[in-house]
Simulated scan of single mutants.
Amino acid sequence: MTINDVSLTHHNGQQAAALLEELCDAYADAYGAEPGGEKTVAFRRRAEKQLARPGFALVTARDETWLVGFVFGYTLPARDTHWWGGMQPEPSAEFLEETGSRTWVLSEIEVRRAWQGKGIGRALHDEVLGARGEERATLATGPDAPAQPVYESWGWRRVGRIPGDEGDYYSAYDLFVLELPASR
């Protein structure tokens, strides 16, 4: 299957809410997890919180019958972002400054296992980020996650590590930043 076999569609938070069941199914498949299992339930909770956030955007990839992948995220607020909290090495105050329109969080990018390695993840990534007006994007991964070299090959740079919160999947997260085309 090539990227030509799927269509990419943009959705807002309200439209994304109507697709939540399909998103959960695709997420579970991407990880080889149970659709109603703990990992998928945690994903659903995260997604439901993000749907109403400012700047929320979802791009889906579909073949003729399936949602085969998706990417979504939101814009960091000007205050109380907590995103950069405790980052090491400690960045400059200028780096940490958020305006409510400066940084977009790429929260999730998932592709069903049967479609992985076919360029769909990259197409989703480029489609969602190409439509953003923020200066930069950021994402978090587990330390030494297998996806890190992929992100680096797409132009992301690792900027530091933050501690995880109690109940998080990882005890720490590596943060990456990508300057967006609109800001160049």
Rank of each mutant, 00 (worst) to 15 (best):
E110R: 11
E64I: 01
E21I: 12
I120S: 00
V41P: 04
A42Q: 11
L20H: 09
T9G: 08
E110W: 07
E179H: 15
N12P: 07
E127I: 00
E152A: 11
A93Y: 00
G117Q: 04
I109T: 09
D5N: 14
W156P: 04
F56P: 03
D165A: 13
P181A: 15
P143Q: 08
P149V: 09
P54S: 11
H10Q: 09
E110V: 08
Y31C: 05
E22W: 10
S183F: 13
D168L: 06
G155M: 04
L76H: 07
P146C: 02
V177W: 12
M1N: 10
A28N: 05
R132E: 05
G160Y: 03
V71H: 06
L8T: 05
F43N: 01
E166Q: 10
F176H: 05
K39P: 02
V159P: 03
T9I: 14
F70M: 07
L8C: 07
E166C: 01
W66K: 13
N4D: 15
K49D: 11
R113E: 10
G36I: 09
G133K: 11
A137F: 07
M1F: 11
E135N: 11
L124G: 01
H11C: 08
P35A: 11
R79K: 15
L96K: 11
T2R: 14
T138M: 12
A78F: 03
G32Y: 02
L96W: 02
G100E: 07
E166W: 06
I162D: 00
A17Y: 10
I120K: 00
G36P: 07
A172F: 01
E110D: 14
A114L: 12
D165Y: 08
T9C: 13
R122N: 04
G117Y: 02
T75Q: 08
G69D: 02
R122Y: 04
L175A: 10
